[in-house]
Design a protein around this nucleic acid. Structure first.
Lengths: 158, 158
DNA sequence: TATTGTTATACTCTATAACTATA
DNA sequence: TATAGTTATAGAGTATAACAATA
């Protein structure tokens, strides 16, 4: 079984304590994330738009339903969001020849460039804030985020 | 200096890597948090409303400006949000006798009960998902959240 | 008949600009 | 004149209900 560092007695972390910490930490962290995405004026994307675009970019040609499922919204919501991205020239749609009810989505070259700039800017700006942390804290953060991902990204619902 | 477990060689976590992890993990975690707050039908609060109410509840009698600063929105936004909470009977306002421009906010007993129920429900529902994790993962999560809090809650901007 | 997606409608969240009241 | 707050307006994000088109 996993042997632990013998240094200090570790108080066990209960699921309830973690849930509480999640509840009052996550919203602030999201604020910072949002801010990092708005920093480059004139070149911005809301968090939902960013997620939407990033998802479409990394799938080959997802449907509206797939986007909705991924970002966790209803189809009407995804539909209008995608519509805005299409009007902004970031996404193109094509009818699926195999099932004409489906729209296959793709990020345009414009959208791809836009996504790249936003992502890089946000990452840089967040990294700058994180650069104040020591190596131990960074590692702890990374591990915590891994757990978060395994819980809420890789295994969405139970 | 902090001695490390001698088990495996640890790849150093760079601020950039953590920023990337933040960018693609946090939104999903927020989805889960939002869902946990909506679970109890008929007894819900949006995340911003929850933050607003929770802040007012734990301060003695904050002003609209203080709420705006805490949740990171402009005053008009805070003003209308609070107005909704007032109309819902969760918050009461009183003119500050010392400076009649200020409104002093308070959570009503109704609001307090509501907040308690929502918070408990959300915590329980999140805790249930986290209960699948082992003790090590829970600890890692707790530590990661501590780092997140120290970075984005305790020390908002540089 | 079931599924994919859109349209209609309504609310919250959010900002900027313009205004009111008080210091 | 400066500050606290509100009102007006506009747009994004969100949901439910109703509809269209296709399987």
């Amino acid at each position: 079984m996993p042997q632990r560092a013998a240094s200090a007695p570790r108080p066990a972390a209960s699921p309830e304590d973690c849930a509480t910490a999640l509840l009052d930490t996550l919203p602030h962290a999201m604020d910072a994330l949002r801010a990092s995405m708005r920093e480059h004026v004139g070149e911005e994307l809301s968090v939902p738009q960013f997620r939407c675009l990033a998802f479409i970019a990394r799938e080959r040609a997802p449907t509206v339903g797939a986007v909705a499922a991924f970002i966790g919204v209803t189809m009407p919501t995804a539909s209008t969001m995608i519509d805005r991205l299409v009007r902004a020239g970031a996404v193109s749609t094509a009818v699926d020849p195999a099932d004409r009810r489906r729209s296959l989505l793709q990020v345009t070259e414009t959208g791809r460039a836009r996504l790249r700039r936003i992502r890089q800017g946000a990452r840089q700006s967040l990294a700058q804030e994180l650069a104040r942390l020591g190596a131990d804290d960074l590692l702890a953060l990374q591990r915590g985020l891994d757990v978060l991902r395994s819980t809420f990204v890789d295994a969405p619902d139970t």
